[in-house]
Amino acid sequence: MSDESTNVRWDRQTTRDAFARYSAKREDSLRDELVVAHLNLVRYLAVKFANRGEPLDDLIQVGTVGLIKAIDRFELDRGVEFTTYATPTIVGEIKRYFRDKGWAVKVPRRLQELNLAVNRAVEKLSIEIGHAPTVAELAAKLDATEEEILEAQELGQAYNLLSLDTELGGDGDGKSQTLADIVGADDPELAMLEDRTVIARAFGVLSGRERVILHLRFFESVSQTEIAKRLNVSQMHVSRLQQKALEKLRAFLAE
């Protein structure tokens, strides 16, 4: 049993009452209370994604954005408990964050790199310790988990880039095609994809809070005032953070 279990028990009636009052009055102080009361839920969910290579604090931060969305949209009379309602919203926000960070591009790359590093480390360690290393020894050497080592060995190869001359499976008529035969012309969508990847990488230079602000501001068109309310800071502060974040992005893209 995880040690969080004692914390993550809310009194249902208290929660319902708080939502009833919040939906009637929409007071910020009530919303803050509801946010605080459910931060454990965000934390519980964020921890589940913590092994995917992003800082837990960032995950908690974007998860909290999801929580706030869920609080604002929740309707008591739908007859579901708030946690049921909020979990997919929070998870969705966390997963979107990984997508924004270009995670799906980074992970195969990391597995490939780890795959190469494992091969090198096997040679090196074999000499150092006089026998072929165990997975645990490799993990310690490469600062990875044992599961990552095993996965890199299995899956890392699957992501190796194919050569253009790789023969694709023929269908028995003797004329097997190569990859080069079926690759078409430049695809404008592909260039856009690259732009997206660049932007996703550029977002990596931002702090969690800066990302949240830019995301809300430009992807969801939320006003600075509203963002300030959600993050519980002044509008001026949001404006400054936004300015700083955009400067960072410009600097990154100019490189």
Binding site: M1, S2, E4, S5, V8, R9, W10, R12, L41, Y44, L45, K48, E81, T83, T84, T87, P88, V91, G92
Partner: peptide
């Protein structure tokens, strides 16, 4: 509501 149950909601999402 107890944390034991949350796993299923996580799985659902």
């Amino acid at each position: 509501l107890s944390v034991d149950g949350l796993g299923v909601f996580l799985i659902r999402s």
